Computed example of a mutant assay.
Amino acid sequence: MLEENCRNCKEAITGNFCPNCGQRRYKRINRAYVLEEIQDIFVDVNKGFFYSVLKILRNPGKTAREYVDGNRVDHYKPIALTFVLAGISIFVSVSLLNFNDIMRKYTEQQHINSKFMSDIFTVISSYYAILMIFLLPVFAFITRIPFKKLGHNYYEHIVMNSYVVSYYTIVSLIVMYPILFLFRQNPEKMMLVSQSTFLILPFILMWFFKGFYNQIPLKKIIVKILAVLALTLLTYILVVVVSTIAFILYGVFVDKAVLEYAKPK
């Protein structure tokens, strides 16, 4: 293979990649190049998107541990993966399941006549995948507290939780959404199925952290997961209380229209 200079840093390249910056040897962008890129990202089961999805389905904790420990060349970047999966999830829930309209019908059936509460239900149900991504820093803070002595820092916990969110989203796409599609004409049953899926989260966390810390006894993992759930509940209560107080204060002193928005009709 002939030597050439890297188009990025000008370092001499004798192989397929620059030894200085890691950029691939120059290839002109043509049909073959584009097809190769698509294959690398989505089609090749030995690396990239589908490779990571399959690895996560088999054992999310073990897959996350491999990535955190440095085995990353074949893996789709975990945080990027959560965004891709969230985009797929939102497309399915909004465009195919038409969750927005279904949730409005549900709130009408439940006599929830506050536009604010109706909108909250709709946003959470339709866009939960993207909400979970924005909450990754919070999840990481919560999980790090019980697992702190095991040596992983806050940012590693962000990556770990991105794998948990990815696994939950994949399971939802494969299992929950087909069931929701069957009940799309019955908003109450759809809401029941949708809410019940959150009950599997403790078991997902248990399986994940047992796979990640396979040297730790299961009983110890369970205790730490219970601590995570307790901290999550406390955080939720705190956020609800603070948000409610802030909402009321804003309505009283800044814009009274927001109180009308929340008031039942």
Rank of each mutant, 00 (worst) to 15 (best):
K148F: 15
L180M: 14
T143E: 10
T122A: 04
L150H: 06
P178E: 04
V164R: 00
A129K: 00
V138Q: 07
Y127K: 07
F134G: 13
K149C: 07
F139T: 08
F116H: 08
Y177M: 08
H152K: 10
M117D: 11
Y127S: 01
G151I: 14
I124Y: 06
L136V: 14
L173S: 06
F141D: 06
I124L: 13
I179L: 11
P137A: 10
V175C: 10
L136N: 07
I130C: 01
S172C: 10
Y128W: 10
M117K: 14
Y128R: 00
I174K: 06
S125V: 04
T143K: 12
Y155T: 15
S126D: 02
G151K: 13
S126T: 08
F141E: 08
F121I: 07
F121H: 15
L131H: 05
D119I: 10
I145P: 02
F181N: 14
A140R: 04
A140K: 02
L150W: 13
I133Q: 00
S125I: 06
L135I: 12
I179H: 05
P137Q: 10
I158V: 14
M160Y: 12
L182N: 11
S126M: 04
S172W: 02
E156V: 12
V164W: 02
V175E: 01
H157V: 09
L182R: 11
P137F: 07
E156R: 10
I142Q: 00
F116E: 03
M160N: 08
V159Q: 02
F181L: 15
P146I: 07
P137G: 02
Y177S: 04
E156T: 04
H157L: 13
I133M: 04
Y155W: 13
M176C: 05
L150D: 09
N153P: 05
T122D: 03
M117C: 08
L150N: 09
T169S: 11
F116A: 08
A140W: 09
Y128L: 06
K148Y: 15
N161S: 15
Y167H: 06
T169I: 11
V171R: 11
F121W: 14
F181R: 15
M132I: 13
P146G: 00
I174D: 02
K148G: 07
H157P: 03
V164I: 15
M160F: 09
E156I: 12
Y127R: 07
I170F: 13
F141P: 01
Y127H: 06
L150G: 03
F121E: 08
Y128F: 12
L131P: 02
S118D: 11
Y128C: 07
N153H: 15
A129G: 03
V165E: 11
T169P: 00
T143R: 05
N161F: 09
Y168C: 13
Y127T: 03
M176T: 12
T122Y: 06
V164A: 08
I133V: 13
L173C: 03
Y177E: 06
M160W: 09
